[in-house]
Amino acid sequence: MSNLYFTEEHNLFRESLRSFLQKEVVPHIDKWEETGHIERFIWKKFGDMGYFGLATPEAYGGLDLDLFYTVIFLEELQRINSGGFAAAMWAHAYLAMTHLNKEGNHEQKEKYLTPSALGDAIGCLCITEPFGGSDVAGMRTTAAKKGDTYVINGSKTFITNGVYSDYLVVAAKTSPELGNKGISIFVMDRDTPGISATKLDKLGWRASDTGEIAFDNVVIPASNIMGEEGQGFPYIMQHFSLERLIMGVNSHARAQYALEYAKQYMSERTAFGRTIDKFQALRHTYADCETQMEICKQFNYYVAKRLDMGDYVVKEATMSKLQSTKMADDVIYQCLQFLGGYGYMEDYPLARMSRDSRLGPIGGGTSEILKEIIAKMVIDNKDYKPAT
């Protein structure tokens, strides 16, 4: 492991986490993939081990560690071959909890962030809407101020942990006439009257509970607003850098695991009197795949280092997700081909991995949207600014 980014402490953490996942998670994955429901006990075990608090301040039950502990957390989750389980964990820790940590006040953090870090509460982030998709500014969910309350109406979709979470971090328009300048962020309890959720049936990520959520005259205290009213859009944009980097890291880790598995298989599978890893056509294709994976991995480490230093890496994180998710799809497709007919069988890991990987170029901003963001920055010289 490169000592440019990882210390001995990082490497020991990786070994410990890998052992934990093999012992505590892997035996249950097939059941959770089948039921689409991750049992509650594992959330508590993650919390007890400190895995949800890697980036959370110590004052709220976290460890406040550098970003490369998060990189290791993401990479090792991909090795257990359940994109849905991995997504449930990181969506809680790095989507819902990130907004709480950055925009929440002390009371909100005590109520929601601390139990989240300890694994006692599960959160979800609600931004995407049925008619909006990647168009965050076009959201239709509203939050109307009524005295010392807000009344929420609208719907969200494709929400990871959207069915079984305990609380929701929700983006809604407090001033619809102002467009993206009229969006605010709120936190609310799952059992608040008027909130309902429907579980969605997906191609992949089957262990995670992806939901469509409806808000029907949901009344919450005005104190549930996070940060400043009308600042929701820059808050969301600011955190997209982390989300996109997370998906980039997920992708290179997923591709690396697929390549490791395919290499082992090719070293054992024989055809025409020799193992198939001796055939030049397969060797050279494998070399191409390994090269593309390694390029993405090293770029992602570089972006993680800059983000950890406090740089505003919206362009680089967008590039990370765009290129890494495409690479993972291509590499995993080829690794399935290396296995031939066995690659198509559910008893082998490439079938599930292929389904799970396909969400990469879609979730967290489609590749088409990301290309336009990059084009605006490198052609039109648009300068995105962090939230003040």
Rank of each mutant, 00 (worst) to 15 (best):
S2C: 06
N3M: 08
E9Q: 13
E9V: 09
N11C: 14
F13N: 05
S19I: 05
L21C: 01
E24R: 09
V26G: 04
H28V: 09
K31F: 14
E33G: 05
H37M: 08
I38N: 09
I42A: 03
K44V: 12
G47K: 02
D48P: 11
D48Y: 11
M49K: 15
F52Q: 07
A59L: 12
G62C: 08
D64W: 05
L65D: 05
L65Y: 03
F68K: 03
Y69G: 03
R79C: 02
R79M: 07
G83P: 03
F85T: 05
A86D: 02
A86T: 00
W90R: 05
A93H: 10
L95F: 11
M97D: 14
H99K: 14
H106S: 10
H106C: 07
E107F: 07
Q108E: 10
K109H: 07
Y112W: 15
Y112N: 08
S116D: 07
A117M: 02
G119Y: 02
E129G: 08
P130K: 01
F131D: 15
T141S: 14
T142W: 11
G147C: 13
I152V: 15
S155D: 12
S155Y: 02
T157C: 06
I159L: 01
Y164W: 12
G179F: 01
S184N: 02
I185V: 14
V187Y: 14
M188H: 06
R190L: 08
I195Y: 09
G204E: 00
G204N: 01
D209W: 13
G211D: 13
A214V: 15
P221R: 06
M226C: 11
E228P: 07
Y235F: 11
S241Q: 08
E243L: 12
M247P: 00
M247I: 01
G248Q: 06
N250R: 11
A253S: 10
L259R: 06
Y261V: 03
Q264L: 04
T275M: 06
L282D: 10
R283D: 04
H284V: 08
A287I: 05
D288L: 11
Q292H: 12
M293P: 00
Y302S: 03
A304W: 00
D308C: 01
V313E: 08
K315F: 04
T318C: 03
D330W: 13
Y333E: 14
F338R: 02
Y342Q: 15
Y344Q: 14
Y344M: 14
D347E: 15
Y348H: 13
R355F: 15
D356L: 04
G360R: 01
G360Q: 03
M377V: 09
I379M: 15
D380K: 13
K385M: 13
A387F: 07
